[in-house]
Design a protein around this nucleic acid. Structure first.
Lengths: 241, 241
DNA sequence: CGTTATCTTGACGTACATCAAATGTCGTGG
DNA sequence: CCACGACATTTGATGTACGTCAAGATAACG
């Protein structure tokens, strides 16, 4: 199934936060119609079923990806199976951009994921012709680096309560940088995913959720839905960052 | 004291790993003499005494820096003082490159640090004129992102023993990517720095050092010097990554 | 509507933190 | 050169936040 332009996940208009995707602005704002047309010629759209691994850590990095629907978990694993989720990728996110020869992270679909796949060789040529796009990707990598540093602080120095509060606050800011903060958050990932993201166990995540609920900070209409009742207090619990 | 070219920390030759610096190749290989001359005109060289903070987290990011001597700790802090060191910067490293308006990390000199300071505004102009340099910086950010992801796995999922082993293995690989792995490692940072880097306490770091010594993995001629006696076993202890 | 995975809750264990003190190291001045 | 003081490191005794093990409760799904 080859991309026809319809399937390409780059916003062609100039609206800053179109329905297209959360981070459309950060990477795609700099892309003009000329670049877009060229990209559409080398893209392949595909679907990944929930639970499927579509990037294997350590494999030769042949392609890079742009998520156009659904949510994926990105992770590293130790030989004995211990897993660290480094982030969740959604609408508009880019994967496999590293210049290293192999993928530094694995990626699995949490729900049904739609994505566009680009051969990395072709990307290099496009980037050389359109420096503005490379600059935009640079900014994107920079944002991820800043997020990774925040997460290091969380993993190295925060308590379980602070970690979960930080997670919920960050989720309520997402997915739209330009939208109002959300009170109701959808959690497509499992408790196990959240645990592996926050460096905790499933049990501790669950206990901490109920503690936040008992304290009146949040409500849990269902395990995958959180309503933030006291945003300011929750943010304070997150540890001031 | 204004840069004269002598003080500028960019390698002008093309030798891949000159005495100039560890990561010279990753950022500076792509810089030609023309760029170099222009950079030297906007740089200011300065010295920072041990213990001095020269970048304050959250301050407006006016300049960026290139380390030309000594070692600095890069860190984030919580309001109550808990600290997470996100990395150590040495010869050739770049700081303050984020496109965000404020510094996302603080930086303190561990020993006497020499550095070149560049106004960020001037950098933008240089980068626009010399895309090869921007590409090199992109690769640099990418390397840091991969390192940050490794560190997330360490902080989220490794034991104290695995953390310290990982740290020593990584240090033995540095500072020269192209040199033989070092058996004798210098540790300019304190136990407290190592603790804040590995998400542990001073006491646990110290105990783990002595345990590695008793197990015959390392020798400690002095607290700031480590000799790796069993590199292969130590690497295995690091947890296969 | 049963089957199965996920989530929650409880009882208990442990790796690492905390508190406290001894030892070692280094710069400074006598 | 040596004595002193400040600070870093090591070592010991004890505490605790979170992990592990083990059931239930709830939700998802054919």
């Amino acid at each position: 199934m080859y991309g026809t332009g319809q399937q390409i996940a780059f916003a062609s208009g100039s609206e800053p936060c179109a329905s297209f995707g959360a981070r459309a602005d950060s990477v795609c704002a700099a892309i003009n119609d000329e670049d877009l047309a060229r990209l559409s010629r080398i893209a392949v759209a595909s679907n990944v079923a929930a639970g499927q691994t579509f990037i294997h850590e350590g494999d030769p990095a042949a392609d890079f990806f742009n998520i156009t629907g659904g949510t994926a978990r990105l992770f590293k694993q130790l030989p004995d199976g211990r897993r660290q989720i480094t982030g969740f990728a959604g609408l508009g996110d880019f994967l496999g951009l590293s210049h290293h020869g192999t993928y530094t992270l694995g990626a699995e679909a949490i729900d049904a994921v739609r994505l566009c796949r680009f051969p990395r060789g072709s990307l290099r040529a496009v980037l050389d012709d359109f420096p503005s796009m490379e600059r935009a990707l640079f900014r994107h990598a920079d944002d991820e680096l800043a997020a990774a540093q925040d997460q290091m602080l969380l993993l190295g120095r925060k308590t379980a309560l602070e970690r979960l509060a930080s997670f919920l606050v960050a989720r309520s800011a997402a997915p739209h940088p330009c939208a109002r903060r959300l009170a109701r958050i959808a959690l497509p990932m499992t408790r196990g995913d959240i645990a592996d993201y926050l460096g905790l166990t499933i049990e501790t995540v669950s206990r901490t959720f109920t503690r936040l609920k008992l304290d009146g900070m949040i409500d849990l209409p269902s395990p995958q839905e959180v309503v933030i009742l006291r945003p300011a207090k929750l943010e304070a619990m997150a540890g001031g960052l």
